[in-house]
Design a protein around this nucleic acid. Structure first.
Length: 489
DNA sequence: TGAAATGTTGGGGCG
DNA sequence: ACGCCCCAACATTTC
């Protein structure tokens, strides 16, 4: 306990780590005792509710953060309610003199934060916000005329021209806790937030794939840099290999920072033992760049998850076909690479990026279902469901986004499968009912001869569905519909 | 961070 | 030997 120290509330949000935490570091440097608090803001109606997968991740991330805090003489206070009233009550109850947090970039979140900053400053509190989430703030990059950037490549070039990201801050060794009367406030347990599913408990089977803690993020990062970075430029597209970092859920919840990743990757590439090329490094860095670009887009287009970035898509004739949507969600479209991806998502809370593009393209172009339906499903089921990356990427595939894929770029799910899962290992893992098919048929089982199917003991339409829609027909239909759009402004 | 249709080229088979 | 055709292989254009 630190009885004489003034108290700083450290409001944790999407920054559930202790290393490279500018707000925490600054509060400690000023000599505050720290009261770390997490507020479940679900009673705030204007905020988008977390998806089911995100809630599960959050449960474990809060548990891990609390554990790390306890090892340093502190602990996480859990509260629920509207952030402003919760914080007001806490300040009154504790006599806190400071309020620190890391910035967030959603419109409603920024509105809430700025109101809180105003009241806190009016109340004489030392109130500061910090960048813990991004390499560059969205407003740091503009065109020559001061406009938001609309194209990735110049955005990323301008962002990089701002200089190397700041070096990460160390983890504090100790975090002094305030000396407070035990009845100063009413803490909630993490369990009381009811973040975990009960019936059915679909989350348990996902857990073996993840270690949800700050050290778990670092284990994954170092493992990736050791084994996955070499060849990343090419092999990041291969869902059958292990060349992607899978850090996105940790980034989403701030269990690791992009600065930490950046500098660790640069250092790994420079080490004597590394076989990774400059191209591997820069292509990994540019994936971080797409995340930055997404936040830039979100910042200047707050309703990115609902409104077409290009309004010419507003009258697009999307199809309302619940059965098709359900088949897509369930991994029962009849296209193995699509179904494998949707099942990877359902089983692990994650999907390989190449396969995200293929499955999204299939929903949007072949089934002609509104990209928002897909965005919602990913929001609900991805551990890394991100307020910026998720809608920005869906709009990119739909062609309605900034710097988007042109409408005529329609993925052929057969060719994509054959190109990026050439031996069918990924498909066989997630679509075991067709695993017996030979490599040259694994991505197009409906072309197998009756004798082959019999030999493999597969009854199409029974053990595994026939294609929901013929690729050629779907392609032609999509081209026709997309052609009716006005050309880009 | 596409795919398919169309165009071009050049080697080999053949009369 | 020569021209012709076929068709991969590659390049270009179109959607």
């Amino acid at each position: 306990m630190s009885g004489n120290k003034p108290i700083a509330l450290l409001w944790f949000r999407d920054d559930l780590r202790l290393a490279d935490h500018p707000a925490l570091t600054a509060a400690l440097a000023k000599g505050y005792a720290i009261l770390p608090v997490y507020i479940d803001e679900s009673p705030t109606p204007q905020l988008r509710p977390l998806g089911a997968a995100s809630r599960v991740w959050l449960h474990h991330a809060l548990t891990a953060l609390d554990h790390e805090l306890k090892q340093r003489g502190s602990s996480l206070l859990i509260q629920r309610g509207e952030a402003q009233s919760v914080l007001k009550a806490l300040i009154k109850a504790t006599g806190a003199q400071a309020l620190y947090w890391s910035r967030r970039y959603g419109e409603q979140e920024r509105l809430i934060d700025s109101q809180i900053k105003n009241f806190a400053r009016d109340s004489g509190l030392d109130t500061e916000s910090f960048n813990a989430h991004l390499l560059v703030e969205p407003w740091q990059v503009t065109t020559k005329t001061g406009q938001p950037m609309k194209v990735f490549t110049p955005f990323w070039k301008a962002a990089r021209a701002l200089g190397e990201p700041l070096p990460p801050l160390p983890t504090p060794k100790t975090i002094p806790a305030p000396d407070l009367p035990s009845k100063a406030f009413k803490p909630l347990s993490i369990a009381a937030l009811n973040l975990l599913p009960t019936k059915p408990d679909w989350a348990t089977s996902m857990m073996p794939h993840w270690t949800i803690s700050e050290s778990g993020a670092w284990t994954r990062l170092t493992n990736f840099l050791e084994h996955g970075l070499q060849g990343y430029a090419e092999d990041r597209n291969r869902p059958d290999l292990e060349n992607v970092s899978r850090l996105s859920p940790y980034l989403r919840f701030g269990m690791i920072s992009p600065r930490q990743i950046w500098h660790a990757a640069v250092a790994a590439c420079a080490s004597d033992r590394s076989q990774a090329s400059d191209k591997d490094l820069s292509s990994f860095q540019s994936e971080l760049g797409w995340r930055e670009f997404s936040y830039h887009l979100l910042y200047y287009n707050p309703d990115l998850a609902n409104q077409n970035y290009q309004s010419r898509f507003n009258d697009f004739p999307w199809m309302d076909h619940p059965d098709h949507l359900t088949a897509w969600q369930s991994g029962l479209t009849g296209y193995p690479i699509v179904d494998a991806g949707m099942r990877e998502l359902w089983q692990t809370g994650f999907m390989h990026n190449r396969v995200r593009m293929i499955t999204a393209s299939f929903l949007i172009k072949h089934l002609m279902i509104d990209w928002r339906q897909g965005e919602s499903w990913f929001w609900d089921t991805l551990f890394d469901a991100d307020c910026a990356s998720n809608p920005a990427s869906w709009q990119w595939v739909a062609g309605s986004g900034a710097d988007a894929a042109p409408y005529f770029r329609i993925f052929n799910p057969i060719l994509q499968g054959e190109r990026f899962d050439p031996k069918g290992a990924y498909v066989r893992h997630y679509v075991p009912e067709i695993a017996a098919l030979p490599n040259d048929l694994i991505h197009k089982p409906w072309t197998a001869s009756p004798s082959t199917l019999a030999h493999c003991k597969i009854k199409l339409g029974h053990d595994y569905p026939l294609p929901l829609i013929d690729h050629g027909e779907g392609r032609d239909r999509a081209l026709e519909a997309f052609k009716s759009l006005k050309p880009p402004a």
